[in-house]
Design a protein around this nucleic acid. Structure first.
Length: 197
DNA sequence: CCCTGATTCGC
DNA sequence: GCGAATCAGG
């Protein structure tokens, strides 16, 4: 398949959304992340390394036999919140139907019934919990289809809701979850029992 | 090892 | 123009 207008549009959209080249490639299908990156560059997207002029010119007298490595380009990171956390407000890992960037959040409370039976959060290591709520902010928010063998499959939100997604962060070794989620998913019996703190 | 984007260069 | 191979880095 080739770069049809539609495909290019999707590419632009996803790229501007901060999606990774590999994710875009998977979404498009029939292309590798390399293809995506190549296209991105050809389209002039990516880094803004030369707003107007580029005072970097090489006449033509010293080709410099070593033109392999890239000098490392500065990249803009749309996801980076430098602001200090006023209050982590660690609450629950379950009803994580929390902040949905720029979208009106529909507080869809499950009709009547509280929460489905789940591994009691009140017995989980507080630190692990904090880590989870922390990490969910950085989650990739993958859809079911985007999960791979090594992406965290920890579900967040209510499947019946629109804001439901999977963590998607890199999962560790054979496990189905990322570091943080493994922490709350696989609590050693020993630590559950008589923990003091 | 997993991943990311960047660059090169034959096609 | 395209993208695999390769590079550089996290």
């Amino acid at each position: 398949m080739s770069w049809t207008d539609e495909r290019v549009e999707l590419l632009k959209k996803m790229w501007s959304e901060g999606q990774s080249a590999s994710q875009i490639a998977k979404e498009l299908g029939s292309v590798t992340r390399n293809a995506v990156i190549g296209k991105v560059h050809r389209l002039g997207l990516s880094n803004r390394t030369q707003p107007g002029a580029k005072p970097e010119a090489e006449p033509a007298s010293k080709p410099e036999p070593k033109q392999k490595a890239a000098p490392k380009a500065a990249k803009a990171d749309p996801k980076e919140a430098p602001g200090p956390e006023p209050k982590p407000e660690v609450a629950s890992i379950r009803p994580s139907a929390s902040s949905a960037p720029g979208s009106a959040r529909r507080a869809i409370i499950p009709a009547g019934q509280p929460l489905p039976p789940q591994p009691s959060a009140n017995e989980i290591d507080p630190e692990a919990l904090a880590k989870v709520s922390e990490i969910e902010k950085k989650a990739k928010r993958l859809s079911l289809m985007e999960l791979t063998e090594r992406t965290c499959k920890w579900p967040v939100g209510d499947p019946a809701t629109e804001d439901f997604w999977f963590c998607g962060l890199p999962a560790k070794s054979g496990k189905p979850y990322c570091e943080a989620h493994v922490g709350v998913a696989f609590q050693p019996m020993s630590s559950r029992r008589d923990r003091k703190r």
